[in-house]
């Protein structure tokens, strides 16, 4: 069976950037080789650099540039106003929606949707059930490694695509509490939008100064960047349809180009793995893929090869 060339997706931006930063970034993305672009705010409803009309306008611009545009929903929905915004988003038929919560799946009944990584799809039966509900693409929980994925890919229902986070910090937890505000001794309701000062989140280190986690408002991410570039051949053989790259303030376009080179066989896996690792601000990890602690790193040798 011929192996399909995977498509590249730019996942939703998890940080808080200014309107100017956002528009400039996505303008560059329009000219990049990425095939699918996820837009919208998935972390905190107070982040409103763009209003919903501006996101839609941006979506249209990217669509005209040949991108498939998907709008992503908020992951943790608490307030009535957030649920109201979700209602409006799910009513729109213009773009495909990535559901990051089951409330979105409910509101998208009868429509096609993408299930994001926080929807907790761990097994065949869940995959089949949501496919019957209209899911046409799923992003596995980042905990799912190679072994369960082999099984799930073999028994995957007809017509559903698999998208995997191949490059980016791992989304690990969501809370009612805002850790960025807490780090500034501010209450969450008067956070002064401090996340704007941290375009790649705030570093949380252990007391022996080892980078550990990234604080991003109500979300906690890994400090290390998950890098699965060295698994490229494996991913293709498994029939992973879409490779997701998570945006960061620097180097994202270069990462996209490197993965594009890889899928077009313009370069080797070793070369890309080595290059791409240099773009991870605090180093990379791939433990989840191997069924181990997510922070573990197996790709050291490959990264070291060309550096």
């Amino acid at each position: 069976m011929p192996i399909k060339r995977p498509r590249l997706a730019l996942g939703p931006l998890s940080y808080f950037w200014t309107e100017e930063q956002l528009l400039e970034f996505y303008q560059q993305i329009a000219d990049s080789p990425v095939d699918i672009v996820y837009l919208g705010e998935t972390i905190c409803s107070k982040r409103r650099s763009l209003d919903s009309d501006q996101w839609l306008t941006l979506g249209r611009t990217l669509q005209e540039a040949g991108k498939e545009v998907v709008l992503s929903t908020l992951t943790l929905i608490e307030a009535g106003s957030e649920l109201g915004a979700l209602h409006r988003l799910c009513q729109s038929d213009e773009f495909l929606i990535e559901a990051n919560d089951l409330a979105a799946v409910q509101l998208l009944k009868g429509k096609s949707f993408v299930a994001g990584p926080a929807t907790n799809i761990y097994n065949q039966r869940t995959l089949s059930f949501l496919t019957k509900m209209g899911m046409r693409r799923w992003v596995p929980s980042v905990e799912l490694g190679h072994e369960p994925l082999v099984d799930l890919q073999e028994n995957r229902p007809e017509g559903v695509e698999t998208e995997l986070l191949v490059w980016g910090r791992l989304p690990l937890a969501y809370s009612a509490r805002c850790y960025t505000a807490r780090a500034h001794n501010l209450p969450k309701d008067d956070c002064q939008l401090r996340c704007l000062d941290y375009p790649d989140g705030m570093l949380l280190s252990t007391r022996e100064e080892k980078p550990f986690l990234t604080i991003n408002g109500i979300q906690t991410q890994s400090a290390l960047t998950q890098n699965l570039s060295h698994q490229f051949d494996n991913l293709c053989q498994l029939g992973v349809d879409v490779l997701r790259i998570s945006p960061q303030s620097r180097g994202t376009l270069k990462v996209i180009d490197l993965f594009d080179d890889l899928r077009n066989q313009r370069t080797t896996v070793e070369e890309v793995a080595a290059w791409v690792a240099k773009l991870a601000p605090l180093g990379s990890c791939d433990g989840y893929w191997h069924g181990e602690a997510g922070m573990e790193k197996h790709l050291e040798q490959i990264e070291g090869a060309s550096s």
Binding site: T75, L76, A118, N120, S141, V142, E143, L170, L172, A173, Y174, S175, A176, R177, L213, T220, S222, G287, Y288, G291, E292, A293, G294, M295, E296
Partner: peptide, 16 residues
């Protein structure tokens, strides 16, 4: 639990 239950992977990030 201060994190949303069912959506906290901190433990597996550190221990698997």
């Amino acid at each position: 639990c201060v994190m949303v239950e069912g959506r906290c992977l901190l433990s597996s990030y550190v221990t698997g």
